[in-house]
Amino acid sequence: MPEKPKVAFYWCASCGGCEEAVVDLAEAILDVIAAVDIVFWPVALDFKRKDVEAMPEGSILVSFVNGAIRTSEQAEMAHLLRSKSKLLVALGACAHLGGIPGLANLFDRESILKAVYLEAPSTVNPEGSLPTTHHKDDGHSVELPGFYNTVQALNQVVEVDYSVPGCPPTPRIFRTALQTLLGDELPAKGTVLAPDCALCDECPRKDSKPEQLSIVEFKRPQQLLIDEQKCLLAQGLLCMGPATRAGCEALCVRGNMPCSGCCGPTSRVKDQGAKILSSLASLVAGKEAAEIDRILATIPDPVGTFYRYSLPASLLHRKQLDRASLHEAAASK
């Protein structure tokens, strides 16, 4: 009997939802387990990093890594799994695009640490101690992972073969991706394993979208009683569907909530946020700057809305630090 292909799972900066998504395969997971040999899965199985280090290069067929890269440890693990695997797959929005943790790129390391360890109302830290990478106590010293200034998507740290989109990937997306990966013919490197079409294609409300849409106000879901049949954009809700890859079968829209863009852009788009921005702004009514601004002001947080899952993978990656203060800091040193 030939050896079963080896598969690994790892979890970087993420919420753990993608791990749940694997379990969400339900009975189908048994087929997966039957078909493969899971050699590393910290969340479920007791393999250690040293076990992976001991494996020969390229001995794992596929490593599924979810989560963004936020710490030095995550980067190390990404490099390690890369070297041990034939295929490295970014699983879920955080690994694929940076995801929700990627919104931290609107801040820098110092302000994040300050907010979390010193300023948060729930923080009790009278000594004002902050995380460090070296710690000495009682004659023992310990090295800890460092916290990066910028969150990165997996492919910004190591070469990634495929991405499975979604926050988290739906069982259907994950199952289809698995079938593709275990199949005979692999798609081109870099492929996102989901349909290369925007979500409207599979949206149940597609027919209710008017051909001539002119937006006079963007509304937030809590501001109206949402019609369960009608296109959400036509109701004034900011739906990312037109700029977001299909595959999830419009789960959020079926749940009467607008798409927030977790599957990322199609392959033809470099920057999901710029594209939804362009399409929505084009449809805004008004020809005078003041009128346009009034309508656009109903989008309170453009970056948080348009780049909710894709900020690290976007063209600008992160917020630019205040150069004036940088110059000052450089001068003071």
Binding site: E211, Q212, S279, S282, L283
Partner: peptide
């Protein structure tokens, strides 16, 4: 055609009514 999701964003953008929505193909 195979890439278009039929989101209809483009239709009002054309001042010449050159873009139309094909109901059968969506």
């Amino acid at each position: 055609e195979d890439q278009c999701s039929g989101c209809k964003t483009c239709i009002p953008l054309c001042p010449y009514q050159a873009i139309s929505y094909m109901e059968e193909k969506k």
